[in-house]
Design a protein around this nucleic acid. Structure first.
Lengths: 196, 196
DNA sequence: GTCTCCGGAGTGAACGTTCAATCAAGAATA
DNA sequence: TATTCTTGATTGAACGTTCACTCCGGAGAC
């Protein structure tokens, strides 16, 4: 029972991810999600309160996955530069390998959904440990060691991840090629932007 | 007559820009745009074939404005680094001063609209001279002079403008402060990412 | 039988778009 | 000048469609 419960829920989530990535939030009716998932439209509402809640759930799950990805490969004993290079490569690689998740994330982040979400995360009471703390720590450690420019963490974040997102996008949409060497050089450039 | 013709069209464009920036494409019905513009809903369809056409028109006008902005301040006699610094500052400043246009652009670019638009621009037959050619030339000149890393122009573009967009966003949403000095340092960092 | 889970036709609301009616401002007429 | 005619921009109620969401009948487990 629990098995099939999760199976349907997972099917709905997977279908929604794929369809929204391609057609956008408003180009994918719940009926389409249900059909692709092989369930009735009503079944969606057994697992999610509303379409919005489904979308938030997708985002939450994606964030969890990425956080895990970072934590798995993170080795605090590496030199800072190595840690940054690895971090950048892991994230860029993940998005290249999971284009649907990237395109979903992009649409989410730049929509009113994502803005509200981000605003809450920054100005809300952060009781729980969000994964960004690792990044924040990483930047602060770099500043303390005087290997990273002394700037607000948010700006350093933009300098390092802004290009990664942009390059991932170009790659996923087929506008550029990206071999391993070029990925390395790209992340190097991101590092050059934040290093002292 | 011509006067009032343009006035209404302008009013519709301005209202749409403002409302879409705040509420998103699907959060702003045509009725809302008409009301804010002080016209009947039907009037919109005298000036634009459909809501989609209105949105494309908004994007086109915005692109034109930004292209003009760049051309106005562009001085080919400046050293490359100076040209890049100026370019970055001008664009960042423009977005900070025109948050609605930035938020509209962001939503457009990352939606299925923008993807189709970009795809056409890259793979379509580019008969007309699009303003990006100046950027392309700028990057190529930098590579030829051996002051910029030798990478595909699209990647250099991402490295330089990715962070600018990201920082503009954070600033507009009120997540960071940005004084003149910090803007300069930010654009410096963008330059560091692409320079040799 | 009882209970839980599921499906998909059905519902009402909201939306983009249309169109017959309206109105104002010349042009034509006298 | 006063009056009528013509034109075309403007309007907003109405239309048809689409969509998120509901609800009830049935299937299956026990």
């Amino acid at each position: 029972m629990q098995e099939s419960y999760c199976e349907k829920k997972e099917a709905i989530l997977a279908s929604a991810m794929e369809l929204i990535a391609e057609h956008g939030f408003h180009g994918t009716p719940t009926s389409m999600i249900a059909e692709k998932a092989g369930v009735g439209t009503g079944t969606i509402y057994r697992y999610f309160e509303s379409k919005d809640e489904l979308i938030y759930a997708l985002h939450k799950e994606l964030e969890r996955k990425i956080k895990k990805l970072i934590l798995d490969r993170y080795n605090p004993n590496d030199p800072l530069r190595v840690r940054f290079m690895l971090l950048g490569k892991v994230i860029l690689r993940y998005f290249i390998d999971n284009p649907n998740e990237f395109r979903f994330l992009e649409q989410f982040v730049y929509s009113p959904y994502g803005i509200a979400c981000r605003r809450e995360k920054i100005f809300g009471n952060n009781n729980q440990d969000n994964g960004n703390d690792i990044l924040k720590e990483l930047f602060n450690e770099g500043i303390a060691q005087q290997v990273i420019r002394e700037m607000p963490v948010a700006i350093l974040h933009s300098l390092f991840f802004g290009p990664i997102m942009s390059v991932a996008r170009d790659r996923i949409l087929g506008f550029i090629e990206l071999d391993e060497a070029m990925i390395t050089r790209t992340i190097e450039s991101c590092w050059n932007a934040v290093k002292l």
